[in-house]
């Protein structure tokens, strides 16, 4: 009964939205942000337009977005009751995984570094690199490589907020030097973006890994 009603409503919504989507796709908005981004790209300090939008033109969105990630990380820590205790039952004893991890973890660290560097001129950037970093951490944890540093504690708190803090400081310096909040000094925007992205990569990796660790709590409940 309920399934039927919901299906009918969903079909109805789809029927209303489909013509709207078609109409929007065929309309011409006239102004195009795309060309605007291209003309100002040089002043942004990076060569890749997506990175320019993320870390310069619309950096405020990104600052708040990292804030959202940090909030998720904080809540994860606040709910984690497992402490620093390593959880042997979550560890895999698969020998193949162990052998692979030895190869993969260093490779993934390299890949993360490359993704970070690539972000300035081609698709890539802090988030992709941070996600790969976190994946490497998950692999380490699964195979029992030392990961005590990721347990809730001062290290994790510092690590997950480092990228956000530096981003925020740079933003404030922009206002203090008489330009605007989040405005980079003219010649330093390229290097500053790289510094911010590097620290963001580390923080994003730690937040994602920290959330992974926080979710896997075992208080002796049944499995």
């Amino acid at each position: 009964m309920k399934a039927g009603v919901v299906t009918v409503l969903a079909l109805l919504l789809g029927g209303i939205l489909a013509p709207v989507v078609v109409a929007v796709a065929s309309a011409d908005p006239g102004t195009s942000l795309h060309t605007l981004v291209q003309t100002r790209l040089e002043a942004s300090g990076v060569e890749h337009p997506v990175t320019a939008v993320l870390l310069n033109f619309r950096a405020y969105d990104t600052l708040l977005e990292i804030g959202v990630l940090v909030v998720a990380g904080i809540t994860g820590m606040s709910l984690s009751r497992a402490g620093a205790r390593a959880e042997p039952e979550l560890r895999s004893t698969n020998t193949l995984l162990h052998a692979l991890a030895r190869w993969f973890v260093p490779l993934m660290l390299l890949l993360a570094a490359w993704l970070l560097w690539a972000g300035s001129h081609r698709p890539g950037g802090a988030f992709q690199a941070g996600a790969v970093l976190a994946a490497a951490g998950v692999m380490m944890r699964l195979t029992g490589l030392p990961t005590a540093w990721i347990a809730p504690g001062p290290m994790l708190r510092l690590g997950l907020s480092a990228g956000f803090s530096v981003f925020l400081l740079v933003a404030a310096v922009g206002a203090l030097t008489g330009r605007a909040f989040l405005a980079y000094p003219p010649l330093l925007s390229g290097p500053l973006i790289l510094v911010i992205e590097t620290l963001l990569t580390l923080s994003i990796g730690m937040i994602l890994l920290g959330l992974y660790v926080a979710a896997a709590q075992r208080d002796g409940a049944d499995e």
Binding site: H34, P49, V53, R58
Partner: peptide
Amino acid sequence: PVAQALVLTGIVVAIA
């Protein structure tokens, strides 16, 4: 690129 940047931001928020 703006739409791509928005989606990237959206994805990060969704992941969080």
